[in-house]
Amino acid sequence: MTLVRLGAIAITIFLAAPLLVVVPMSFSTAPSLQFPPPGLWVGFYAKFFADPNWTGPLVNSIIIGIATAVLTMAVAVPASFALVRHRFPGRSAFNLLLMTPLIVPHIVMALGYYVYFGELRLLQSYLGVVLAHTCFSIPVAMLIITAALKGFDLSLERAAMSLGARPLTVFRLVTMPILAPAFVIAGLFAFVHSFDETVVSLFISGRDVATLPRQMFNSFRMEADPVISVASSLLFAAALAGVLVPAAVRSVRRTLDRRNSPLAS
């Protein structure tokens, strides 16, 4: 038993340690990938934020990520309601269609988009990347939303209705707030999925709307630009935030409801 626990601790360290290498590297003074760093400074951060070859893709990735999250939620939320709350002919085929983007390798889709978007003149455009990323994000968002919807107790909506709430009010005051954490997480997953997506961006974003992963990938391949460590650290910080955000959302919601209480003076 203790042996298993020791093993688990060792494996956890194996998982965590490489991630921790990234941050000190970004403060390194060495122009190459030297670890441990010979000295510390913030010069690479200055370089990162002064270089349009890095800031441009960073901004692009944020724009594309937000657009992808919005578009994903716009189609995935209604589709999730259809799947969970209704039985209709073709339901399982619909479910399969929504899930396949998870199975199809990105490199295959990269080729498909390269040719298809070439014809539609969507290569090297924000719209093209957003459309492609949304396809990959839909199943991820759907999994989160449908799971939350399945766990949603329908009698809550019935209770609200019996208490006098009209359907839209029920959605606004009961369904939506209860599912909000799942929606936030689903949207966040869609954003992160887009923000991290490398392969399709690599082939279709071109120089004009290059994403951060594309820029990173190319600089890995071309030259070992130490500024990559800054990009990596920023992405790692974002991941750290991603792990902490859901807990934060919960506490904020509670505070808001307390303020709304009829007992509050």
């Binding site: 809550l156 209770a159 707030p177 209860i178 409801d257 307390r258 709304n260 209480s261 009829p262």
Partner: peptide, 8 residues
């Protein structure tokens, strides 16, 4: 409603 206080 789990997201509302008893009073709400």
């Amino acid at each position: 409603f789990p997201h509302m206080s008893v009073a709400n």
